[in-house]
Design a protein around this nucleic acid. Sequence first.
DNA 1: GTTTGAATGAAACGAACGTATGAGTCAAAC
DNA 2: GTTTGACTCATACGTTCGTTTCATTCAAAC
Lengths: 209, 209
Amino acid sequence: MATTDTRTQILDAAEHLFAEHGYRGTSVRAITKLAGANLAAVGYHFGSKAELMAAAARRVIEPINAAQCAGLDKLLARTPDPPVGELVEAFAGPLFDEMRAGDEGGARTSRLIVTILSDPAEEARSWTGPAEDSVRERYLAAFARALPGLSPQELRFRMRGILAVTAVDRLEVHQQPSPGCASPVAGEAARRWAITFLTAAMSAPPTRT
Amino acid sequence: MATTDTRTQILDAAEHLFAEHGYRGTSVRAITKLAGANLAAVGYHFGSKAELMAAAARRVIEPINAAQCAGLDKLLARTPDPPVGELVEAFAGPLFDEMRAGDEGGARTSRLIVTILSDPAEEARSWTGPAEDSVRERYLAAFARALPGLSPQELRFRMRGILAVTAVDRLEVHQQPSPGCASPVAGEAARRWAITFLTAAMSAPPTRT
DNA sequence: GTTTGAATGAAACGAACGTATGAGTCAAAC
DNA sequence: GTTTGACTCATACGTTCGTTTCATTCAAAC
């Protein structure tokens, strides 16, 4: 118990701090201090700071990946050609669902994902496993069937647009709290706004060349 | 000339490195080495690393801000209620135009903007002047007229979505080059894809509550 | 009771960082 | 010819970083 406890507390602290300050902006000392652990514990349990980041990222992303995968399976079980809106919801929804999971700890989950995606540090891009790629490719194929006439390049552009928009609340968090607008717009409202926004965007007719 | 030359070369190098590796991932030593200048030159010409970042950001953002402002002026001179598509183009267009400006140096311009917007370092958020806010507020008002029935909160969400999507190519650059898809999709194609994508997204009916 | 091995703790290592200092350079002003 | 002031340079300072080392703790196995 004591073993797992320290490991888990370090992971929790790392998730929190990496999400808030990025990879380079977070020191191992700050993580162990927040976790109430010794400085050397990171080296002992994870090997290095980069591997700790990878472990924290895996722990956060795996359930989201699984949910995205299950959502697509459910859709495809019903019809071989799901409509765009449902594909968007199945893909983008889990990113917001995780936000509501924990009472308060879940809020930083999606922030960590976006931090990793946008972190300029090289260490943040080395750990992506084949699971993420495979899910993305499956959605890509489903969207391609739902949006005939769209070139593969433009489709990929739009897929990346989905990821970018889910990053939106993080941009808000990083900026000074906008006056006159409650910063935590509640995960549920943001989720539905994003799906509205993205469904319309994905459904746009191909750009004429 | 020699004075301005060193200052400009430092600015160029800083723009390049900040865009690629972020604020914390870029050392003053790396900047001065790339610029062919002495380490102390940063302190002399700019005062500190944070002020250098602010100067580099200002140099990049000011022309974009001016273009966004002029574009809106031109639209409003024609009609008091411009359509959504033209508002999107006037707002998002300059972010891509700057990309094509320099032969190759312009490509990093928009990347620097996104780096600043998404950089977790506190220093990256302190310098935003009143000019940026005023332009954003003017567009906000114009979009509000073009999209009646949209709550102010959802409108702000969508505005942030525009910024997020223009960040899209940066996410691509940070990831390993996607196989089977030429990474530099040419600024012009990305520009038109983004405008298609965003016009449809902004034009979506309000999310029903 | 002794041994074992995982886990923790305190301290230190070398490297890299942002910044500061003071001497040196050089064209223009006088 | 001298002085001035903007600029560049080599170097050093103090801090913080990721990592390593080694002694210590402590429950379980023998």
